[in-house]
Design a protein around this nucleic acid. Structure first.
Lengths: 244, 244
DNA sequence: CGGCAAATTGACACATCTCAAAGCCTGTGG
DNA sequence: CCACAGGCTTTGAGATGTGTCAATTTGCCG
């Protein structure tokens, strides 16, 4: 087959959580997809849109965004390659937020129609996809906790720990460093802080040798120490194999 | 059948989103459940527990709670009767948070085994359940947005609007009033604020005739006005009928 | 009446935001 | 090769929102 396999990283990450049968993976491979390149900043899916396709990221970063009346935005999720970003739309039908490309992205669109078909034929595959939305929700809970009860520095640390763990699962971490091509303004939108505060807290984290963030790269000198500092418990990311 | 129907309110709320066939409802009725009464304050499911049952609330309020190292807690969701509280556990298998009874509750436990069976037989029913977890996730996004980008008073208003809409769907709102037997400390845990601040902002909201909260009852003098003030857009609650 | 939990208030500390300016890169055009 | 513009980062100063601590009041229940 000449066309690249859109679900490669998705399968890789989900296989850490449950075994996927060969015919299930084969079924995914035969799913009709439309590849598209999205330049940074583009709105991949608009808020309130009626969706009949969902998209999976194969390269780059995307985020879910909610805009408030005063023009600010809160990013409620950051998605990495292999994430089936708006699988939620498969059930929701109408978007309650938009999805934005945070870097140049490659995404693959799948129609809800073909998803429905494949889930009917392979119910277990359906549960794997369901699981992926439920893990998204668990991540959202962790963010809520960060915003509600953690200090700014802890929130940043927690986010870094989370990305470290998630990116590890798709092989994108080398020596406790990983790429994160976000500006401080974008981090602020993610973390629900002002850009100035992000800047100051990053400085602190750097001084305390907890996190170094520069040139679009994040480095964690001591993962155990950062996890302790940020009260990060990876259980919510659900990286353990169980039959589902 | 003598035993009460555990899924009555669940069916009622989900029927606003998609039609449920008679045989699907009948299948739910025949699902083996174990009823239990939970007094206020009890931990219904413990964090990190391995779950082989999930529970639906038939009466009372329950919340998902994450405890931080310093003994504080963030409540990440508030569940009302008809909510299948920890259906997430059906997929997650190991809890990443605990579930607490916020009032005396009646809950019904269903084994994951019987859920699996019924979903296999009725795939559409499976999608209805999946949808309910995805709506939970949408609510979580709205909370994240509140914590990140709304003022304290707006957050409270938003929560009140949300509960108003959700409780309406199960017929628990009368004349724009509904019961909410929570202390200000519990509201603070929900909203990620201090109890003192909640108290002051409630006072403000009362003075501005936006929300009156007393004796475990919430009253909204003018729903449209409160929604405007809180930037509440009910789309995320997904109350519209679509085939799923 | 006394006791207890919850609500309320005041005073002050601290975290975070806003506004504004300065510094630092990088790409571009002369 | 230099000058400059534009985006991003960094810093400072002061305003504001929110938290903490402690005391008082209220309402309920035994």
């Amino acid at each position: 087959m000449s066309s690249p396999f859109a679900f490669e990283l998705f399968v890789r990450a989900m296989s850490l959580r449950d075994d996927m049968a060969e015919d299930e993976v084969a079924a995914l491979k035969s799913l009709p997809v439309r590849f598209e390149k999205m330049p940074k900043g583009v709105e991949i899916i608009a808020d309130h849109a009626r969706a009949d396709h969902s998209c999976i990221i194969t390269k780059g970063l995307a985020a879910r965004a909610v805009y408030t009346a005063d023009g600010e935005r809160q990013l409620t999720a950051l998605h990495i390659p292999g994430d089936f970003v708006d699988l939620h739309a498969f059930l929701l039908k109408i978007m309650d937020h938009s999805v934005v490309a945070m870097s140049d992205c490659d995404v693959a669109f799948v129609s809800h129609r073909s998803l429905l078909e494949i889930f009917t034929r392979y119910p277990h595959l359906g549960r794997i996809f369901w699981l992926s939305t439920v893990v998204d929700a668990a991540i959202q809970r962790a963010w809520t906790t960060s915003l509600g009860r953690r200090t700014a520095a802890q929130s940043i640390g927690h986010l870094v720990c989370e990305l470290h763990a998630r990116l590890s699962a798709i092989g994108a971490v080398v020596g406790n460093s990983f790429p994160l091509p976000l500006t401080q303004q974008e981090l602020a939108d993610l973390l629900g802080m002002s850009i100035v505060h992000v800047n100051r807290k990053l400085k602190e984290l750097r001084a305390d040798r907890l996190v170094r963030m520069e040139d679009g790269q994040v480095h964690i000198p001591n993962v155990a120490q950062l996890r302790e500092f940020s009260e990060f418990d990876p259980i919510y990311l659900n990286f353990f194999k169980e039959p589902r």
